[in-house]
Design a protein around this nucleic acid. Structure first.
Lengths: 225, 225
DNA sequence: GGCCGTTGTCATGAGTTCGTAAGGGATTCA
DNA sequence: TGAATCCCTTACGAACTCATGACAACGGCC
């Protein structure tokens, strides 16, 4: 339910943590060192960071400090077992929680949930991707090849719904129901909005590739290969 | 600093913990079993509880549950080392933190401080930066390119919140909730304050770059590149 | 008390978005 | 081939949203 950035230089540790967090329905992005972590933090706006204290290059403490400058983000520290000094440092610089290595992945997942729960702003938004298209629900913005698209509210809702349900054809009635929240309505409403959306996301709006017409039925989102 | 209730059936453990917490300027009250703990919790209203999981009579889990019924009080669990089941249980029933026995009293004292800090002041930072903007929370002052900005109280709160959560769209209701602390209110209050803030931080307030409008939704802080 | 800055509310106007209608083109089927 | 159906495109007014300026209430300070 949230976007989590996992920072650890050990790929094995990352793999385990990532798989557990994904199983808990979180979107996960990874970094292997401090520099990469800071770049991802700036660019991806994760909801929470799981951060190893011992990192090559910029160490975890410095990463934590710099992330804190860029925004109010919860951080869970990973520290070596028994190294009390490390743990003390972690708490002093204001990590929201920490877990000692070796740790149980299940416990870490619980900590993540716990920290998210007491976070001031609920993190319940995920991002949807399809090829070079990206729908960021938290930012309420869609991007094509990294460039933000100037979508209106309805267009954004429509795109979000279609990308979330690729490969399936929806009738206009279904779209009115799912996107507009109407139980009845004029079909042309859908038609026109589809056209407007195509105008903004299709390479050649006259010959749509992603938002395809299904004759006699409605429309279908064709996922990128 | 705070009133802490220490619950453990071992008088030696209590004595060590208590002396350390007193050294850290906390007021400490003690209980040797679950029943006594619940009575003191009800009567003395401590700010935080350090609770042994293994107790004669009513066990720690039950004590924790009942205390939670009586209010949102931070609880730190004491558990046996390596007993992951206990730790997981502790987290699941909502302990804010735990410490494994044998533990360093100094670390416990730090944990107490840490939990108190995040329960009273939820994960706030001292300084926030975004491009040439700087928010100094301690001084309650914001700067642009080193020059202090003449912000009013509300404007400062609004700016701090937005910079702390960059790249995310907030509805007016959410902003009223997060910045004003209101659960309901007039949307125009937000609109007007956004306008006033833009007047002071945007290069061209008519065409805002950082504090952007998200049509039909609310506003979003655009982090500088 | 009087002055001043802050704050919340309101009215107004400008700008944006949305739904609908209508005409023309495309597709299907007899 | 022709008719019927479905879809695309365009245009336009209504409804909505936001920005702006003004104003009164409130509290601090002299």
């Amino acid at each position: 339910m949230a976007r989590v950035l996992v920072v650890d230089d050990d790929p094995t540790v990352r793999e385990v943590v990532v798989s557990y967090l994904r199983a808990a329905d979180h979107e996960v992005i990874e970094a292997g060192d401090g520099e990469e972590a800071l770049v991802l933090h700036r660019g991806e706006h994760p909801d929470l960071v799981v951060l190893d204290l011992m990192l090559p290059g910029i160490d975890g403490i410095e990463v934590c400090r710099r992330m804190r400058l860029g925004g109010d983000i919860p951080i869970i520290m990973l520290t070596a077992l028994g190294d009390e000094a490390d743990r003390v440092v972690g708490l002093e610089i204001g990590a929201d929680d920490y877990v000692t290595k070796p740790f149980s992945p299940r416990e870490l997942a619980l900590r993540v949930d716990s920290v998210l729960r007491r976070s001031t702003v609920p993190a319940t938004t995920q991002r949807l991707e399809d090829g070079d298209l990206l729908v960021d629900e938290a930012a309420h913005t869609a991007f094509r090849a990294g460039e933000p698209l100037a979508l209106t509210g309805r267009e954004f809702d429509l795109l979000r719904f279609l990308i979330a349900h690729p490969g399936r054809a929806f009738s206009r009635d279904e779209l009115l129901e799912q996107v507009w929240g109407w139980s009845f309505g004029d079909h042309s409403t859908v038609t026109v909005h589809v056209r407007r959306l195509r105008e903004k996301i299709e390479e050649d709006p006259t010959h749509p590739v992603r938002l395809q017409t299904v004759w006699g039925v409605g429309y279908r989102w064709e996922a990128s290969p």
